[in-house]
Amino acid sequence: MSPSEQIIPHGHVLRYTLKERLTHWVAAGAYIYLLMTGLAFWSPWLFWVAVILGGAPLSRMLHPWAGLIFFAAVWNMYVMWAPQMKHTDVDKKWWKAVRYYSTNQDDKMPPAGRYNAGQKFLFWGFFWSAVALLASGVVLWFPERIPWNLRSLRYISVIVHPAAALFTIGLFLIHIYMGVFAERGAFGSVIRGDVSIAFAKRYHPGWYKEIVGDSSTPRK
């Protein structure tokens, strides 16, 4: 990621390239549609959501296609980010100190790199859930094509699909909470691409060191 690709305002550093941001929002848009239509079929009390989104048959028709878009975007994230999401020793320490993180005592946290251990967990959680959702979703897409003697595939999928979806909903809620409410500045990073130097230093000191170098003065 070269900072020169984009114009960064004074006192800021680039966190997400345009490609990364686009991928994020394709995944997010598809996910929110999948979430709304999926929940409509999950509970009779939410069936009206599908009606509002153009009718339940349409939602049923488009949900799997949105799933394919979602999976493509997640796959793209995997290609872009998987090397940065490797579990490190710092991450072990991070998990041990996670209670300080969740009580806003960030000064007591080990220095995170571009991603802290929680963000890595979120990434891998979403990635493996997306794989499970795709596999079970394809079975749910064409139940009538599954031969009778392979019906256990259908029986497994009706559990795996909603269970994986529920797991991602948990991740999703925390993700939104952190990105929008708790860690102000994070939301802007995925819109405009940059974060303030203070943000980088505070939440991702390892990463900050990496991009500015140990010796140099912060890029102005």
Binding site: G185, A198, Y203
Partner: peptide
């Protein structure tokens, strides 16, 4: 617990202090 940063720390984008 509220947000992680405080206004006086000016950590969110737009803040110049570092």
């Amino acid at each position: 617990f509220g947000p992680k940063d405080r206004k006086d720390e000016d950590i969110h984008p737009g803040g110049e202090k570092s």
